[in-house]
Design a protein around this nucleic acid. Structure first.
Length: 447
RNA sequence: GGUCUGGUAGUGUAGCGGUUAGCAUAUCUGCCUGUCACGCAGAAGGUCGCGGGUUCAAAUCCCGUCCGGACCGCCA
């Protein structure tokens, strides 16, 4: 297809002045700093209104929107990439107080087809499925991109905080020969004729790397071949993984996550205020010490306070919601750690408490949903082999996992945060799919 | 995988045995010099998710199937 470039000059405009020295690009958010000056904007044609003798073009760039006014303009289809040169004017009728009086309007790349979604109106009503079917354009919507922007800043804060605490970023294989937590739920892969899998967790590798750098983290996708159909599961999600050595107990790990979340929220407050306003979301307070309640006490609490009896060995989703409701009302916190999970609810490498029934594993609940699982890990070879026997697992199939523990692994523990879950809860997004650009679920492999 | 619920122009929806399948918006054409969900006039745009059945007649009723949403199991 041919890409048309058109160049139009409004009748009353001055001759182009940047033949030798191109005008630097100005972002829409900075218009106010250029009052009465000539600026060059680039962006997408967010909206157009042609009144005959005057045309309004709302231009969208990474920083926001700007209204451009001209006459004699032929406006291409919305979403076309365009460039505008014009004079900034304070105008009482302009959104934001400033607009650009167009002298040159250039189409950099015209849309050849109308957008399937009306980007400016998307926040009114679009079916969820449609939002994902046309993800390549729906992401251009102000609210959609705001969510991903927040997530990017969240990840940035994760890096910054851990770097400041002496952690080293690692990168572990996503193509693996076996799962860290057993063989189920793994996507199979043909690796030059050998059976391979997509990693469901960097668990083993981050533990190995504790033996190298003592404190490590990784930001990477993980893969779960579970055919669940819920608003909080993805088959590919971004895992924010942390592991630290030379700890006294899992309390040290929770302390770290507590500080980390505090930093993340401070960073988001500074960097994403506009996004939170746009999405009508509020940042949580992170208490200096997030409450920690043993699982059995949590089960008793929701029974006592709300008459909800939990079956099974963990908390069910309703119990997670009620527990969070309780702590929000009584202690003013949106976060709560649930600790001392029984061995039956944790993997074989969870560090057992003396007595053998419970582990040093914990979950972190945030606004009604589990966003983290973590704990202290078994670091001694003999204890690990005993645990594997207790779980009735085959030591041979776990040989790849256990090998490193022959070589003096320090006491250590860690956790993983589901980035989309945290983002979704933070922003009031009901389904984690919309906290990811291109979600993968049971029935979606494209776009 | 289970329960409940829903699939109708690009998008969002109305219609729920007989309609030319209606409306809004987007798109196209014409008009319009301050719009901001601009306005006015017109045009084009539909295998009513798919398959089968009942009926003189099915978007509409029945069965199956695929897909979506909510909740559950499981997890981050």
């Amino acid at each position: 297809m041919e890409i048309k470039r058109s160049f139009m000059t409004a009748p009353e405009s001055q001759p182009a002045q940047h033949a030798t020295q191109p005008l630097p690009r100005t972002l829409t958010r900075d218009l106010g700093q250029h009052d009465a000056q000539t600026v060059r904007l680039q962006g997408f044609l967010h909206a157009r209104r042609d009144l005959g003798g005057v045309q309004f073009a709302v231009l969208r760039d990474v920083s926001g929107l700007a209204q451009c006014v001209g006459s004699g303009l032929h406006l291409p289809l919305p979403e076309s990439s365009v460039e505008v040169v014009g004079t900034v004017r304070a105008h009482p009728k302009a959104p934001g107080g400033y607009e650009v009086q167009v002298s040159e309007f250039r189409v950099l790349s015209a849309a050849v087809q109308a957008s399937p979604l009306e980007i400016p109106k998307m926040e009114w009503n679009v079916n969820p499925e449609t939002m994902l079917d046309y993800r390549y354009v729906s992401l251009r919507g102000l609210k959609e991109r705001a969510a991903l922007r927040v997530q990017a800043e969240l990840v940035r804060a994760f890096h910054q905080h851990l770097d400041a605490e002496g952690f080293t970023e690692i990168s572990t294989p996503k193509i693996v020969s076996a799962g860290a937590e057993g063989g189920a739920n793994l996507f199979k892969l043909d690796y030059f004729g050998e059976q391979a899998y997509l990693a469901q967790s960097p668990q083993l590798y981050k533990q190995i790397m504790v033996g190298v750098f003592e404190r490590v983290y990784e930001v990477a996708p993980v893969y779960r071949a579970e055919e669940h159909a819920t608003s909080r599961h993805l088959n590919e999600y971004l895992s924010l993984d942390v592991e630290m050595g030379f700890i006294d107990s899992e309390e040290d790990v929770m302390d770290l996550e507590n500080r980390l979340l505090g930093s993340i929220m401070v960073h988001l407050k500074q960097s994403c205020a506009a996004e939170f306003t746009l999405l009508g979301a509020t940042l949580p307070d992170v208490l200096p010490r997030i409450p920690r309640i043993p699982l059995m006490e949590a089960r008793e609490l929701v029974n006592r306070e709300y008459g909800h009896v939990v079956g099974g060995k963990d908390l069910d989703p309703e119990a997670e919601r009620l527990l969070c409701q309780y702590y929000a009302e009584k202690e003013g916190t949106d976060f709560v750690f649930v600790t001392r999970y029984p061995r039956a609810a944790r993997p074989f490498y969870a560090y057992p408490e003396p007595g053998g029934e419970l582990t040093r594993g914990f979950d972190l609940l945030f606004r009604g949903i589990e966003i983290t699982s973590g704990g202290q890990r078994i670091n001694e070879y003999e204890m690990l082999m005993t645990s594997i026997a207790d779980y009735k697992l085959n030591p041979e199939s776990l040989a790849g996992y256990t090998e490193v523990f022959k070589y003096g692994m320090p006491p250590h523990g860690g956790f993983a945060i589901g980035a989309e879950r945290l983002t979704a809860r933070l922003l009031g997004i009901a389904n984690v799919r919309y906290a990811r650009a291109f979600p993968r679920d049971r029935n979606r492999l494209t776009p």
